[in-house]
Design a protein around this nucleic acid. Structure first.
Lengths: 169, 169
DNA sequence: ATAGATGCAAATATTTTGCCGCCAG
DNA sequence: CTGGCGGCAAAATATTTGCATCTAT
């Protein structure tokens, strides 16, 4: 119908364009939280990530920079960031098993739109989404602090290639 | 502002009012899938659930009916239902750890609104949500087959009781 | 009859914890 | 200096798989 999308779309393999580098580190410092060598590395890995990473991928990335870093530290750092509300934990519709994916969340909330065939994930902002949350907040009398929307389907490219949405038996 | 909510709200401890009993069983039969004694029990447990259950709770419920049923069968049945798109796998914002919750999904899509303090989960339908999905489908050129929205916050009751949304250090 | 299910046991995967020595502030 | 942090090993949880046997159709 209309030719201009009513919302902004940020596409591709998840470039973290929203936040200035070092955002997480600055946040932690401002809260008086100790910045260890290991934490700095983990934060750096997450901030420079080209796509959503799970704990294992974050560990790999961190060890490439500093091979001493252990899995436990990664989990503890993720937990710290979660407790401070600096990152979100996604499961991206369990497209690739049951791991969790992490992303440092910027000021603006976005929807994750994933192709269930090729795995591409787009991040989408929409005024409609903001309106929806307002409506829910009003009608349910809830003070919203987290929201997560994940949408899955088959993207145009995969449809062209003949992929259907039928269940895999 | 307005006094009448623009959407329907189903409240409480998740009574599965949407679907006729035996819905899952009928679906499987219509697809020519073998209905074993164990599967029937698992389906029954899920359909009569008063709230979202994780795999372990489903197992417990099933074993109360037929003590032979094993955990493996539960997982395999859940997997079967997932592959056929008959149930959704939720994590409810990881409010209670990392387990997954399952619900047989009816014809209508709904949003899960959870209080992060008392754990109550409401299921909400909204035309606005349907519109949002249409818009995304259009703008991202994606054929949507799954969608999941989970919203967390503090409900009116808990706010009255003085609960805030501050991070737990 | 037979493709497909289940049970059992064991393998994987993921996340958490206790304890102690170490380092950022 | 010192309380929080990281490393190690092990525990706790959660989910999946190989294989022999059984059963719904």
């Amino acid at each position: 119908m209309s030719s201009t999308p009513a919302h902004r779309v940020s596409t591709g393999e998840r470039i973290n364009e929203h936040e200035p580098a070092g955002h997480l580190q600055r946040e932690l410092r401002s809260r008086g939280i100790r910045l260890t060598r290991q934490r700095r590395v983990v934060l750096q890995v997450m901030e420079s990530a080209a796509r959503h990473m799970d704990a294992n991928e974050i560990l790999d990335g961190a060890q490439k920079i500093d091979s001493d870093i252990t899995r436990v530290t990664v989990y503890r750092t993720l937990d710290l960031l979660k407790r401070h509300g600096l990152i979100d934990e996604l499961d991206l519709l369990h497209l690739r098993g049951h791991r969790h994916y992490y992303e440092s969340h910027g000021p603006r909330d976005h929807i994750h739109v994933a192709c269930m065939n090729c795995g591409k994930v787009r991040e989408v902002e929409s005024p409609l989404y903001e309106e929806l949350k307002k409506q829910i907040s009003r009608d349910c009398e809830i003070e919203i602090s987290v929201s997560r929307t994940e949408i899955g389907g088959i993207c145009a490219d995969c449809r062209k290639a003949g992929v259907t949405t039928a269940p895999s038996h």
